[in-house]
Design a protein around this nucleic acid. Sequence first.
DNA 1: TCACAATACTCAAGAATATGAGTAATAGCG
DNA 2: CGCTATTACTCATATTCTTGAGTATTGTGA
Lengths: 189, 189
Amino acid sequence: MALRHAVLAALLDGESSGYELAKTFDAGMANFWHALPQQLYLELTKLEKDGLIQGRAVIQETRPTKRLFSVTNAGLAELERFAESSAKPAFIRDDLLIKVRAVDSASAKAVIEQLEERALIAAAKIDIFERYMERQRGDADEQAFLNSGDRIGPYLTCLRGLRYEQETADWCRQTAQILRERCAANADT
Amino acid sequence: MALRHAVLAALLDGESSGYELAKTFDAGMANFWHALPQQLYLELTKLEKDGLIQGRAVIQETRPTKRLFSVTNAGLAELERFAESSAKPAFIRDDLLIKVRAVDSASAKAVIEQLEERALIAAAKIDIFERYMERQRGDADEQAFLNSGDRIGPYLTCLRGLRYEQETADWCRQTAQILRERCAANADT
DNA sequence: TCACAATACTCAAGAATATGAGTAATAGCG
DNA sequence: CGCTATTACTCATATTCTTGAGTATTGTGA
């Protein structure tokens, strides 16, 4: 039931069409939710039907007409209710971790490659998050921004995403290194 | 398609019944997969039908008969294939992060409480992981264990789970602190 | 100019996950 | 002696998420 709330939260940043949302959602939700365009369109339709968001059609000259959605007061109230409801424990689902958990000498090579690949992906995300955060806080330093900025939510969650990716990158590199050394030791014998 | 592989990986630690697996799965998978007992029983049934695990009935005197499952050679081969297949990018799904992202003065109080609660949960997990890791490496220090231990997969993923929970706890406490300060500043004006 | 990418969506079907309700026996506690 | 917890599972349904296939128009590079 929480994609619903993730979409509402995303629309707090300003009205958006389904298409725009689909492009920015994964990045904007900084690592703690993910959805395909089809799900987003569907969810937007439902949210509008329930009166939590409202859409307005924008007729464009050169592009198809789009519908921009924004959160209604009922939507804000729903987010309030959501905030007060008890949160389900979070969970990650990560194929790569399963591969590492099951790793043995036969699969080590493939796993090492994927760890390195993942470290690169994480590094790219770190860049994106850092740029976003710089832009958000502008001239102020972080502490000042967090004390006085309004709508600091996206910044706070981006901070979490940033650290998560830093940990991911570090762990992937270290784990790949350990597995490489074990492969080498194995080959010697 | 990966609960399947998570269960296979879990059974590498030794044969287990559905019931035992259900109790240890969430903890053992150290934060990167989660499943309810019903799903696990179902998956075990499918895995057995596909010949990737085999079960043997153990008749107990005072308890109902249980079935212990272990990974077959076909199961090991399937894990190999899985390791070589390209991994889907991981994703987290976390209600609490959505709440933080949408946080405003109205919802701050509820969100602070949940952040503090989450920090405690994370601390409890950290304890569990640390104890598991100590037990695993025994007398050896970590480096030595990782160099020479066999089946280091569970240790490596536990390490990741540990750091993840440490980050979670830190971030939750810091974020709660920031929100508290803003509440106080708000009340002053 | 011609294919290909981008904008802006929709619909249907399928796989994976979650929820709720049972069954049935024994163990331990007061 | 009755109550609840534990062991050990099963079945059915509901929700959620993913996948694949479309539609229709416009902008852009070779």
